[in-house]
Amino acid sequence: MSDPLIRLTGITKVLKGQQEPRTILDGVDLSVDAGESVAIVGRSGSGKSTLLSVIGLFDRADTGTYELDGVDISRVPERRAAKLRSSHFGFVFQRFFLLKHLTAAQNVAMALVNGQGWLPRRERRARVMEALDLVGIAHLAKNRPARMSGGEQQRVAIARALVRRPRVLLADEPTGALDTETGALVIDALLAATTRGCGLILVTHDRDHAARMGRILDLDAGVLTERVPA
């Protein structure tokens, strides 16, 4: 049997501030396969975003091992981490973080102009249009964010996450700023990526959206447990 796409084993993370150290992640074990969708739910402050930061190599775990495609990347240097973020991960955040002076296409192209390899302009444009098409807003390519709705902006952000053809999509409350109907469309777009073999880890408060994922994991006081389907 092949290695899972992501495997976390005994991950701990302790926040050391001016106050007493606080354990955010406490021996987290997690395994995600290619094309699998996983929802992580939990109360505010339960460590969901920290877990996503560790998975997305924004942050490092204090202990435990992190394997990506069977390779231990727990202690990779920042330069390699940047390369892995570019080649393996796509990120979608609650706020869309679109640059207002750029068009939708330029915002998506931003992920391609990141110093990790160089694509000729024509190929770059084709990849951008393909990503925008995947989320159904290719016709808005030349629009700036100010002229788009919240749902459209979030779909541009998803296209930005997809344009490098990532192995895993990490979405941190992507529907938090959207109404129910638009949120559902965004989840549709994210799930569509899993059909192409992309793993999806969704952090959400929304039980309905969580229910659409293949697995639901509860994070409570830094401990991750799999919810048994009813």
């Binding site: 997305g56 924004f58 920042e78 330069r79 940047a82 390369k83 892995l84 973020r85 570019s86 080649s87 990120f91 973080f97 640059l99 931003m110 992920a111 990141n114 110093g115 990790q116 930005r160 490098r164």
Partner: peptide
């Protein structure tokens, strides 16, 4: 700040 943090998130190295 947010733009630069986002650029790092999509794989842009610090040097760039």
């Amino acid at each position: 700040i947010e733009e630069f943090a986002l650029r790092r998130a999509v794989g842009t190295p610090r040097m760039l």
